[in-house]
Computed example of a mutant assay.
Amino acid sequence: MLEARPNKYQKYYVLPTLITYSNMMLGATAILIINNRSLKELRVSCILVLLAAITDKLDGFVARRLNMTSDFGKQLDSLCDLVSFGLAPVIIGWNMGINLLGSIGIVTSLIFIGAGIFRLARFNVTKDDTYIIGLPITMSGAIMTIKYIMDYNYKLKGNIFAIAPYDNIILMAILSLLMISNFKIKKPKLLNKSS
């Protein structure tokens, strides 16, 4: 994204990077405010992660449109994705009761983060732009967050910490397996060269 390339949009070189950083800032803010442990912050944190998913797709689109893609931008995007879609969904889940599950909650959470790191690293070294291999971490984090919003709307009654969400642990484990799997999906032309 910051690679110097002569083109008519050169003066906008910083725009894709700012969008990438906004992804990270949304995810980090979601992590920071969920630690207040209130229902209002829970909902806001989930919305911030979903907004981060939108910015994650927007930065690649803008970089391609301005002809400003680079290896640096790819690496930066992955690091920001780890915050927003690896760490934030796990920490939100912990504040929704995954911590009540003890060791199984800890292990599954670490596996989810590890699978996300694996998926991002594999994406960064893959040269094939025609296929998506494994479930992207952005989708995994967004799916977990949508599940939390569903829990918020339909399962919470009174105390947020009175839930032992085995269904969230199962979903997190399934998403972890999908991230590290080798299934391939042909990329739509619009998504070529994006994470």
Rank of each mutant, 00 (worst) to 15 (best):
G102C: 08
S194Y: 03
Y148W: 10
P89F: 06
T108W: 01
L51E: 04
I19G: 01
F61L: 15
K186A: 11
D81A: 08
L58H: 05
T29W: 03
L26M: 15
A63L: 09
A28T: 11
K127D: 14
S181A: 09
D128W: 12
M172K: 04
L120K: 04
K187N: 09
A173F: 15
T126G: 05
S176N: 08
M144N: 12
I98W: 07
L58V: 09
C46V: 03
T145P: 01
A52N: 03
L15C: 08
I111L: 15
V62Y: 02
K57R: 11
M25Y: 15
F61E: 08
T126Y: 00
K8Q: 13
C46M: 11
R5T: 14
K157C: 03
F112H: 03
M172S: 11
M139L: 15
D77T: 10
T20V: 05
A142R: 00
D167S: 14
S70H: 09
L175N: 03
I185M: 12
I31W: 02
L32D: 01
I47L: 15
G86M: 11
V62H: 01
I160W: 05
K57S: 13
L15D: 05
L178T: 06
A4D: 13
S181H: 06
L87E: 01
K187D: 07
F72Y: 15
G105A: 05
L82S: 09
D129A: 07
T108N: 03
G105P: 08
S45D: 07
G97D: 05
M24D: 01
G158A: 07
E41F: 11
P136H: 09
T145A: 04
V49N: 02
L101M: 14
D151I: 14
I34G: 02
V14L: 13
R5S: 12
V14S: 07
A30W: 05
G116E: 04
P188Y: 12
L101V: 08
L50P: 00
V44S: 09
S103A: 12
I169P: 01
L100T: 13
S38Q: 10
F61T: 13
T55I: 02
Y13A: 06
K11T: 11
I117Q: 02
P136C: 08
M150F: 12
I98N: 02
L87Y: 12
Y152H: 11
A115F: 06
L101K: 00
I169V: 15
R64L: 06
F118S: 10
L135T: 04
T126N: 14
N36Q: 15
N153W: 09
S22T: 15
S78C: 04
I91G: 02
N95S: 13
T138Q: 05
I19Q: 02
I163G: 00
Y154H: 13
D129S: 11
G73P: 07
F118Y: 14
T145Q: 03
N99H: 13
I54H: 04
G141F: 04
G86D: 03
K127E: 15
A63Q: 07
G86A: 12
R43H: 12
D71T: 13
A30G: 10
I170F: 14
K184H: 06
K74P: 02
L156F: 13
A30F: 06
A53I: 03
I146P: 00
S194V: 12
Y148M: 14
S194L: 09
E41L: 02
M144A: 08
Y9M: 08
I185P: 00
I132Q: 10
S22P: 01
L171W: 01
P136R: 04
N124I: 09
